[in-house]
């Protein structure tokens, strides 16, 4: 049973961590808004409304927390101080301000950097294993623990009654100094 528990803890720790770690990302940093000559960005009209103020800041930070900094090891854009991450932050902020939706912005980065840019792997294809395996492990573990508990609760069958004239019984009683 200890082996099973160790396996469950190991597997859940290894598989669950990368899939769900992004939820704990810290808040983003302010990025400089250095302007430069034109770069095209998203090649389609914005589907949302332009935003500013707190909404702009909140949405930018939320998007920066789910996108990976391309020059870092497992850090979000919001968590990195690298120049590239700051530039990505400014890019995100600009898109949000212009009225692009979250989906349009994430799609833009996926188009340029590939699926890898998502800190949360999309739950499709081979990535499904990462999402379903922890659940599967929990279900299988619960079933095994349940089955094991039922076996422990079962009362063992009673021993057959010993005949009064059984020689072995008589000998045991004699050695104990008891009368039959």
């Amino acid at each position: 049973m200890r082996v099973l528990w160790l396996t469950l803890v190991l597997v859940f720790g290894l598989v669950g961590a990368p899939a769900w770690a992004a939820g704990g990302a810290s808040s983003g940093e302010e990025a400089d808004s250095e302007a430069i000559l034109s770069a095209p960005g998203i090649d389609e009209p914005a589907l949302g409304d332009p935003v500013s103020g707190a909404v702009l800041s909140d949405r930018t930070n939320r998007l920066a927390r789910i996108l990976r900094c391309p020059v870092c090891q497992a850090l979000s854009v919001a968590d990195s101080n690298s120049d590239t991450a700051r530039a990505m932050y400014v890019r995100i902020e600009g898109f949000v301000a212009e009225g692009y939706t979250d989906e349009q912005i994430v799609d833009y980065f996926v188009d340029t950097y590939g699926e890898w840019v998502r800190l949360d792997p999309k739950a499709e294809g081979a990535n499904l294993v990462l999402w379903l395996l922890p659940v599967g492990v929990l279900v299988v573990g619960a079933l095994l623990i349940g089955a094991s508990s039922r076996r422990e609760d079962e009362v063992p069958p009673a021993a057959p009654p010993v005949a009064a004239d059984d020689p072995l019984r008589a000998r045991v009683l004699a050695e104990l100094g008891e009368d039959s």
Partner: peptide, 15 residues
């Protein structure tokens, strides 16, 4: 010059 690496980001440059 690509200040802010904006064009690099548009091209998906990692390094």
């Amino acid at each position: 010059l690509d200040p802010g690496n904006h064009t690099a980001i548009d091209y998906g440059v990692v390094g």
